[in-house]
Amino acid sequence: MSAFQRHRRSKLIIANFTGFEADLLRSLAGQLVELLRNEAAEPRDDVDPFEAMMDFSGPTQEPEDPVLARLFPTAYPHDEEAAAEFRRFTEGTLRDGKAAAAIAIIDGLEEAGLPKELTEEGLMIDVELDQPTAETWMRSFTDLRLALATRLGVEEGDEAYWHSLSDEDPRTQAHDIYEWVGYLQETLVGALTS
Rank of each mutant, 00 (worst) to 15 (best):
F20K: 12
A22C: 05
V47W: 04
A40I: 05
M54K: 10
Y76C: 08
A101G: 05
L68T: 03
M124K: 14
H7P: 07
H163I: 13
P66D: 00
D79E: 01
L109V: 07
E179Q: 15
V181A: 04
V154R: 09
G182P: 00
Y161W: 11
G108S: 00
E62K: 08
E51M: 11
S166R: 12
D23K: 04
S27M: 00
N38S: 09
D48Y: 12
D130T: 09
Q173T: 13
G30M: 08
L144A: 01
D176E: 08
D45N: 14
G122S: 14
L36W: 04
L68V: 02
M53K: 13
A99R: 01
V181N: 06
A75Q: 11
L25P: 06
V181E: 07
E117R: 10
L12E: 06
D23N: 12
H7K: 15
T133V: 05
F72R: 02
F17I: 04
V181D: 15
V47D: 04
S194E: 14
E91P: 02
D169L: 09
L192Q: 03
E110L: 05
G19Q: 09
G92R: 07
F56D: 12
R26W: 06
R26K: 11
R171A: 08
T119F: 10
D169V: 07
T133G: 02
G19H: 02
R37H: 00
Y178P: 01
A15L: 06
Y183C: 07
G108I: 05
L25H: 03
I13T: 04
T60I: 11
E159Q: 07
Y161I: 00
Q61G: 06
E128K: 05
A83S: 14
E64A: 11
D65E: 11
P59A: 11
L118A: 01
I177N: 03
S140R: 14
F17R: 08
T90E: 04
D79P: 02
E110S: 05
F17T: 00
T150L: 01
F20Y: 15
L94N: 02
L114T: 06
Y76I: 03
R8F: 08
L184W: 05
Q173H: 14
L36Y: 01
Q31A: 12
P66C: 08
R87I: 00
L28E: 15
